[in-house]
Amino acid sequence: MNLYDSLTAELTDTVWLDTALETVARQPAAVGRLFPAAGRRCGRWALAGLPGWTVDDAARVLLLTRLPVEALATELEPLYRYGDAAEKRAVLRALPLLPASEAFEPILLDALRTNDTRLVAAALGPAAASLPDAAWRQGVLKAVFMGLPLAAVADLDERADAELATMLGGLVEERHAAGRAVAEDATALLHRLQERVS
């Protein structure tokens, strides 16, 4: 099932959404007002059929996918720049569904600099494919620091390398020296990486 079907299957009224999707395709500048309104017009609950997604996430991502490609170049950055936390998260979730662009990397780096777990998690999802390795490793380590479940990290084992193992090993050592706990998923990742080497 595609994103539109997954979303509308759980909406009782799709008039606002359908009108908004048609509008942004014809008049891309309208997205500036429709994008923030998606939460209060469609809802914010967690979608039962799409684990990890909320109604407003899905509605906003759909709006971005309906923007003409040339409009994306001008609209995407300001939508993220002036977005509230929910809007920023939706931009991050939309990136893997949009034509690749040089604009993605600065957006992802901004999200990783925040201290908002929702944004850091979204930046380490499928969108993280646009991140350079050094920033991605720091992102994964930050996720461990913040107590984020590593299940949020896309392609974790495929992308994890010896450098990440060294960094994670250092963190685990510091935590042990301080008598502090380390999340199980982080120690499990470290063990998997160490086994690869041996």
Binding site: Y82, D84, A85, D116
Partner: peptide
């Protein structure tokens, strides 16, 4: 101002 407004709709609610 915009950085401040961003904080009012981003960081502070978090």
């Amino acid at each position: 101002f915009t950085d401040y407004f961003d904080s009012l709709v981003g960081w502070e609610p978090f």
